[in-house]
Simulated assay, not measured.
Amino acid sequence: MSTTATTSHTATPTTGALIGTGLLATAAASAATMAVATAGNMAGVSLDIAGAPIPVAGFGVLTAVFSLVGVAIAALLSRFARRPRRTFVRTTVALTVLSLLPDVIVDAGPATRALLMLTHLVAATIVIPAVARRLAV
């Protein structure tokens, strides 16, 4: 009788894969927030804050900037955190909640505020799970 030793390997995600996934998620989230803003505007929701219009492209740009900050946080956590995925999800969910606060107090109508909050949630729903999947448990 012979025995065969089996070993299981836990794949450690590479930084390159993490960044690649983050970039794809960022692009998808930027496109999605612009689509949500466009749909809202077409439905009659104003994109004006304090009387100044927000360009639809502005939704995509700001989504990209803050999504890339999230990817940078993920890269740092993958290197330094004991539980990178858990820490990333908790951190980014908390940051998403905090990102809603300015929308509550902004000088805009209720529908505009709701649309702004929706774009934050859409971006988070796309980026957080995609990036979290690339982090070690």
Rank of each mutant, 00 (worst) to 15 (best):
S2I: 11
S2K: 12
S2A: 13
T3D: 08
T3I: 15
T4I: 15
A5H: 11
A5D: 12
A5V: 15
A5K: 15
T6M: 14
T6Q: 11
T7L: 15
T7S: 14
T7Y: 11
S8A: 14
S8V: 15
S8R: 15
H9K: 12
H9E: 08
T10L: 14
T10E: 10
A11P: 03
T12L: 08
T12A: 14
P13W: 01
P13Y: 02
T14M: 04
T14S: 14
T14K: 02
T15I: 05
G16C: 06
A17K: 05
A17Y: 01
A17D: 03
L18I: 11
L18N: 01
I19H: 00
G20I: 09
G20C: 04
T21N: 07
G22Y: 06
G22I: 04
G22N: 00
L23H: 01
L23W: 10
L23S: 06
L24F: 13
L24M: 12
A25D: 09
T26H: 09
T26L: 02
T26M: 01
T26Q: 07
A27N: 05
A27I: 12
A27E: 06
A28R: 02
A28V: 14
A29H: 06
A29S: 10
A32D: 12
A32M: 11
A32H: 00
M34N: 07
A35R: 04
V36L: 13
V36E: 01
A37C: 07
A37W: 15
T38A: 09
T38M: 06
T38Y: 10
A39G: 08
A39I: 15
G40N: 04
G40S: 03
G40T: 08
M42S: 12
M42K: 13
G44D: 06
G44A: 12
G44N: 05
V45K: 02
V45T: 14
S46V: 03
S46P: 08
S46G: 04
S46D: 07
L47E: 11
L47S: 03
L47P: 05
L47W: 14
D48M: 05
D48W: 00
I49A: 11
I49P: 01
I49E: 03
I49K: 04
A50T: 10
A50F: 10
G51Q: 12
A52K: 13
I54P: 04
I54T: 09
I54F: 15
P55L: 13
P55F: 02
V56Q: 03
V56S: 03
A57K: 03
A57Y: 06
A57M: 13
G58D: 03
G58E: 01
F59C: 04
F59Q: 13
V61I: 15
V61F: 04
V61T: 14
L62H: 01
L62I: 10
L62R: 04
T63V: 00
T63Q: 07
T63G: 06
A64I: 08
A64N: 01
A64F: 09
A64G: 10
V65P: 01
V65L: 04
V65H: 07
F66Y: 07
S67P: 09
S67C: 05
V69Q: 00
G70S: 09
G70R: 01
V71Y: 10
V71K: 02
A72Q: 00
I73D: 05
I73C: 13
I73H: 00
A74L: 05
A74M: 02
A74S: 03
A75G: 05
